[in-house]
Computed example of a mutant assay.
Amino acid sequence: MLEVARYVQRGKKEGGLVDLAYVVHMAREKSVRAVLTQVASLDDILREEPRVIRVEE
């Protein structure tokens, strides 16, 4: 399970859509991909394919 450090939701787009970004603590790539697969199946919520931006220290 991923532990969410914070999330950000910014403004509304046309049609009432919003961007939502989750920042998670250090996690295995496999775990992140598994969660993205679950999120991608949420047809009533998701309008675009989820994306990952990896940040390494």
Score class of each variant (00 low, 15 high):
residue 38 Q to A: 14
residue 44 D to R: 15
residue 17 L to V: 08
residue 22 Y to G: 00
residue 52 V to I: 15
residue 24 V to L: 09
residue 15 G to M: 04
residue 26 M to F: 06
residue 5 A to W: 05
residue 52 V to F: 01
residue 48 E to M: 13
residue 5 A to S: 12
residue 6 R to I: 01
residue 11 G to W: 05
residue 19 D to G: 04
residue 38 Q to W: 05
residue 24 V to T: 12
residue 44 D to L: 13
residue 26 M to K: 14
residue 49 E to D: 09
residue 32 V to M: 02
residue 46 L to K: 06
residue 8 V to C: 02
residue 57 E to R: 15
residue 41 S to V: 07
residue 32 V to E: 00
residue 38 Q to I: 13
residue 53 I to A: 14
residue 50 P to L: 01
residue 15 G to F: 01
residue 38 Q to S: 12
residue 19 D to W: 04
residue 10 R to S: 14
residue 53 I to E: 11
residue 54 R to Q: 10
residue 17 L to D: 04
residue 34 A to S: 15
residue 54 R to E: 08
residue 55 V to C: 09
residue 15 G to T: 02
residue 51 R to C: 07
residue 32 V to H: 00
residue 37 T to E: 12
residue 9 Q to A: 14
residue 13 K to A: 10
residue 52 V to W: 03
residue 51 R to V: 11
residue 36 L to Y: 01
residue 44 D to K: 14
residue 37 T to H: 10
residue 55 V to A: 15
residue 19 D to Q: 05
residue 2 L to Q: 01
residue 28 R to P: 04
residue 1 M to C: 10
residue 15 G to A: 02
residue 51 R to P: 02
residue 14 E to T: 09
residue 51 R to T: 13
residue 51 R to L: 11
residue 12 K to E: 06
residue 16 G to E: 03
residue 16 G to C: 04
residue 50 P to F: 00
residue 6 R to M: 12
residue 46 L to H: 04
residue 30 K to Q: 13
residue 55 V to D: 06
residue 1 M to I: 07
residue 5 A to H: 09
residue 45 I to H: 08
residue 49 E to W: 07
residue 46 L to G: 06
residue 51 R to H: 05
residue 49 E to R: 15
residue 17 L to W: 05
residue 19 D to S: 12
residue 25 H to V: 05
residue 9 Q to N: 10
residue 17 L to R: 11
residue 46 L to P: 02
residue 56 E to G: 10
residue 57 E to Y: 07
residue 41 S to R: 15
residue 47 R to I: 07
residue 39 V to S: 03
residue 35 V to D: 10
residue 34 A to I: 01
residue 50 P to R: 00
residue 18 V to T: 10
residue 8 V to P: 00
residue 41 S to P: 08
residue 25 H to A: 14
